[in-house]
């Protein structure tokens, strides 16, 4: 509004220039707000509340709407003077920027399925952990100082090795698979082979397999095949002959050398 001539004129008179500037400022202010700053303040307040509420609910206000809101109060800084009004202006722009950040981060977030989200997020946490170390992954109900002292630790050489266990497992025969009829025939054949013969204990394991030895010990126990035990040898009697009345109780352990499967039917 000041013409070129006026400005050159005013340069010589600083105080008058200051007066003109104030005049200009008031003129603009009146043009913007015919009713003072009241209306623009109310608009600012409403918009600030709108964005704060949306942030609290984690809602997203689209860019178009936010841009319209921003334009509406873009010139407000020219007329706002009191600290309260200027603070409100700052608060509005802060919420607007936070909303922008929120929106961007949300758009940038990959659309993961829930399971994937859990796996990816768990990785983020997992690689930052420095876990505590426990030798045993289960807690005791008693503090370790209240426990009695342990004996000397057991050496591993005394425990059964894996080879032993495997051998035992390999030659296990489930007897439920052998029928009773076939068991009888097996007994009879074994009886015929041994009847009336004398064997040394060491030789016996050469003649018989593991399951035959098992069966033999059962038969001796049940007195199906009566036997006479000496110091080094055993004599099998025929079926009908009774053993001598004063036979002493004897137990002989024989380790099988031959391993074979039981014939099944």
């Amino acid at each position: 509004m000041l013409s070129n001539e006026t400005s050159t004129y005013l340069r010589a008179f600083p105080r008058r220039k200051a007066w003109y500037e104030t005049f200009q400022h008031n003129y603009k202010r009146n043009r913007l707000t015919p009713f003072g700053t009241k209306r623009i303040t109310i608009t600012l307040w409403n918009l600030t509340k709108k964005y704060e509420g949306a942030l609290k609910q984690k809602d997203i206000i689209p860019v178009k709407e936010a841009e319209i809101d921003r334009e509406e109060v873009a010139d407000a800084y020219r007329i706002l003077e009191t600290p309260w009004e200027r603070n409100l202006d700052g608060r509005f722009y802060h919420t607007l920027a936070t909303m922008q950040h929120h929106r961007d981060s949300h758009l940038a977030a990959p659309e993961l399925a829930p399971e994937e989200w859990i796996i990816h997020f768990a990785e983020e946490v997992k690689r930052r952990a420095t876990p505590l170390m426990f030798l045993v992954n289960r807690e005791r109900s008693v503090p370790h100082f209240s426990l009695p002292d342990t004996d000397n630790p057991v050496t591993m050489s005394e425990a059964p090795t894996r080879d032993d266990q495997q051998a035992m497992k390999q030659h296990q025969v489930p007897f439920s698979e052998v029928s009773i009829d076939s068991l009888d025939t097996l007994r009879n054949t074994l009886h015929k082979r041994l009847q009336g013969k004398r064997f040394k204990y060491s030789e016996l394991s050469d003649h018989l397999t593991n399951w035959e030895l098992d069966l033999l010990s059962q038969m001796i126990r049940d007195n199906i095949i009566p036997a006479l035990f000496d110091k080094n040898s055993v004599k099998f009697l025929s079926k009908h002959k009774e053993p001598s009345a004063n036979a002493t109780f004897a137990a002989v352990a024989i380790e099988a050398k031959k391993y074979a499967e039981v014939r099944r039917r």
């Binding site: 876990p131 505590l132 170390m133």
Partner: peptide, 25 residues
Amino acid sequence: YCIRTLYGVPGELSDPEYAVLGVII
């Protein structure tokens, strides 16, 4: 007194448990 690892190694938790722990943190 206790002993912990110096470097990042997976602990005794499963993935969902780690995720929940991350959200809490």
